[in-house]
Design a protein around this nucleic acid. Sequence first.
DNA 1: CATCCGTGGTC
DNA 2: TGACCAAGGAT
Length: 365
Amino acid sequence: MLAPMPQARRAPESAPIPKHAARRLLAWYDASARELPWRERGGAPPDPYRVWLSEIMLQQTRVAAVVPYFAEFIRRWPTVEALAAAPLDEVLAAWAGLGYYARARNLHACARRVAGELGGKFPATEEGLCALPGIGPYTAAAIAAIAFGARAAAVDGNVLRVIARLFAVEEPLPAAKPRLAALAKALTPATRPGDYAQAIMDLGATLCAPRDPDCGACPWRGICAARARGIAARLPVRAAKRTRPIRRGIAFWAQRGDGAVLLRRRPDSGLLGGMMEIPSTPWRAEPWELDEALDAAPLASRWRLLPGTVGHDFTHFRLELAVAAGRAREARKVPGEWCALDELSARALPTLMRKVTRHALASLA
DNA sequence: CATCCGTGGTC
DNA sequence: TGACCAAGGAT
């Protein structure tokens, strides 16, 4: 029987770590760093509250989308104690439009933990941070490095891409993540780890972009294995995704004589958890007939289907929502709550429901 | 590990 | 226009 051949593949621990890579990146960062509201200038010590808030908002969300939300949150709740004292519903309403609403619920829960049992102080270690709601491995490392100067490697999507290219790792994600994370950690310097964490993410967000990377301007152009082999643009390799199914439903736009609209609160967990909505049928693959949908209507009325539909793409499915309009003749008790039209903007309505509102108002105008 | 969570930008 | 994907976390 033949003995198995030894693997020719290099173990990750033995991959050569380029000398001075971190120093070179930091020099590039010092010369090119963008000015962002949560970034300290002039060597002022970072405020862990601001670092934490920005990192939660930046999860799977672009800088441009976060900037106005960060400013508004800091204006309304300048400290973790202020945020902890706010009603959850106000926090959800302020978060509306930013997406991934579990982040807002966890944000609030985390603020209460820190302001309460932790005496207003965020933990300074990755382990301590990771135990808090809404803080996972990436965010814990980012806060530990940026706010507390710990030598922690914050490995996000940008870093995975940069490292995959730097070492020309062709193994597909997500299987390659542990290897890439180990390489990222080995590359992290003991000096200025917070600036380094932001620098490598900045590199991924600007020059080392997913497509058409600007390798000629990269501080690592001389040491990048993928660039040397001409394969930078097609790394990292990702496993194929499946196509999104379509779900359909009918939303019920119920208006009272005074113009108020009927809203309903969604369950605390799951899709759009804790947010407000226009009541609707369940969402399913098969289209609905209006007659059949009336079983799910929040009240009896002469419902009529408005022309057109509202389309919205979630991560794992596309939703096509028709809208039925009806009048509530009496002020009798119905499930949910009535909301005046000019107060809708202040409610915790996710983007999908704002689309429904816009659609209904345009059709009825 | 796979799946579920929003939204907006980009080509 | 459809597909990709972004400073991820919870389950």
